[in-house]
Design a protein around this nucleic acid. Sequence first.
DNA 1: GTCTATATATAGATAGAC
DNA 2: GTCTATCTATATATAGAC
Lengths: 213, 213
Amino acid sequence: MLTGESRRGRGGDGLERPTGTREKILAQSLALFNARGLGRVTTAEIAAASGIREGNLQYHFPRKSGLVEALFSAFEVEAETVAGRMPADPAAPEALLAYQRGWFDLIWRYRCIYRDGIAMVEIAPALRPRVHALRARTQALARGVFEAAVRAGRLRIAPDALGRLIDNAWIVSSHWMSHRLQGSTELTQADLDWGFAQVSDLFAPYLVMDNPD
Amino acid sequence: MLTGESRRGRGGDGLERPTGTREKILAQSLALFNARGLGRVTTAEIAAASGIREGNLQYHFPRKSGLVEALFSAFEVEAETVAGRMPADPAAPEALLAYQRGWFDLIWRYRCIYRDGIAMVEIAPALRPRVHALRARTQALARGVFEAAVRAGRLRIAPDALGRLIDNAWIVSSHWMSHRLQGSTELTQADLDWGFAQVSDLFAPYLVMDNPD
DNA sequence: GTCTATATATAGATAGAC
DNA sequence: GTCTATCTATATATAGAC
């Protein structure tokens, strides 16, 4: 249980289907943060969107950083699930694309974490080591998936080059939003598709198109 | 001449060898912004570092955004020079590496622009269209350099794939800092080398190693 | 658990004396 | 051109009544 937050009897991350005030706050926060960025949403707005007063928001989340930490905790759980989802058939042409799609869906739902560069760790510095650790764990899981694709003959790449490719895919996956937001003020489905195509393109030179069987 | 700033008789961007108060302010601001990020440096600190009082800083730059805009203007001029520097021999193995090095040196000197994602355009919204336009101009210039490398037989890539490759190189070049800053609080030379290697790796699959002659 | 009302902190902008 | 002093805005945190 996180420090500085009220404890509740029931579990769940409370982001889908809000069942109480705390859950409602988290759901509304995520929506506002996704739309405008972590640094451009005030606690007053979150309270208003949640249908409560600021004092009550303070009761549930004494600090804005605690709110961000709670959202990150929910993301953390989902990220590890998505990263560890090994394709049934790593040789299938659509396997890696489906894996990437899983990541993009998750990132899109929690895009507030990614849209403003390092804003999250500046608002909630306690998250810095957790961000680092989560990246290490999920990248290791992703590497396992790509190595399976190499063994299945679907991907042709040397082990050290694979490490750099994964790092580049990580950077583009995580920062295409910032890149697009420098020119406009909001993200659309078209931006999402653009980002997906950019990441796909990173893998293109290493994909083996002909089935090796 | 930018609005909202004092006018001076002499020219120059005033970033190297400060010759007056305005130049000193700009040089100190760039150093502080590079070290800690645009959003984590106050006007009070800038005034102190420049050896003047806050009121005097207000005289030269009535708004913090004006300060950021002035720094961006200096960057803008240099960026266009660096992007347009066509290698003497586009077929030479070191030509593209030298071109990339030119960009990295520039980005490193103005790293405050890149280290915090979209922080700059949030502090100075007037820069949004200029960032967009500068990117379009410099990417077009870069494309010209890469197309010369293709014609020289140094790079083997289809025209549409080249566009996506340049976009990916742009994202990695611009955001490897944010990526590294999520785990630590400051950037080192080792980070710079890491970023350079990551971008180089993007081009590796398309490089023709054997001289076609 | 929720509210009202108030306090604190910080940054940035302003007015005017010198 | 530089200073002192003040002001406003915003955001976040606290105390205590209900």
